[in-house]
Simulated assay, not measured.
Amino acid sequence: MRVFQVRQATTGSILWTGAAAGDASALEAMAHEAGYLDAAHIPQAILDRGLKVEVLNL
């Protein structure tokens, strides 16, 4: 597993950092930790601002 960071694209705010198998898994983990059932349940207002998933090279 690699370490990922999910950021809000427009502000650069870090929403989640952790280990995941890939980009999709990182987004699912972020959504779950934020209290959503899965990434499909992230509110459209958040998605409209953009989410950026990056691998951290530690």
Rank of each mutant, 00 (worst) to 15 (best):
S13L: 15
L51E: 02
I42Q: 04
N57P: 03
A24I: 15
I42S: 04
I14W: 06
E28W: 03
Q44W: 11
S13G: 11
F4L: 06
H32E: 11
A21H: 15
R7E: 13
G12C: 12
W16A: 01
E33L: 04
E28P: 03
K52Y: 10
D48L: 11
L58D: 11
Q8M: 13
E54A: 09
D23V: 09
R2E: 11
H41M: 04
A45H: 05
A45Y: 06
G18Y: 00
G22D: 15
I46P: 01
T11K: 08
A29C: 11
K52G: 08
V53L: 07
V55N: 09
E54Y: 08
L37A: 08
Q44L: 14
M30P: 01
L27C: 07
A34R: 02
E54I: 12
T17K: 00
I14G: 07
E28D: 15
R49N: 12
L37H: 06
A29I: 04
G18L: 00
G12F: 07
H32S: 11
E33T: 06
H32Y: 13
L47D: 07
M30R: 05
A29H: 04
G50W: 02
A45S: 10
L27G: 01
H41Q: 06
G12A: 13
R49E: 13
I42G: 01
V6M: 03
Q8I: 09
L15I: 07
L27A: 09
A24V: 15
G50H: 02
G50I: 00
G12E: 10
L47M: 10
A45V: 05
A20D: 02
F4Y: 12
T10I: 12
L58E: 10
D48R: 07
M1K: 14
G22S: 15
T11R: 07
P43L: 05
L47Q: 08
A34G: 03
A26M: 08
V55I: 14
D48H: 11
S25Y: 04
P43M: 08
R7H: 11
E54M: 10
D48P: 05
L15G: 01
A19Y: 10
A34F: 01
G18V: 04
T11Q: 09
D48Q: 12
L37T: 00
A24W: 15
L27S: 02
D23E: 15
A20F: 07
A29G: 10
D38S: 13
K52R: 15
A45D: 06
M30Y: 10
V53C: 04
A34K: 04
T10K: 13
S13V: 12
G50D: 02
Q8D: 14
N57H: 13
E33R: 05
F4I: 07
V53W: 00
A24P: 08
G22Y: 13
T11F: 03
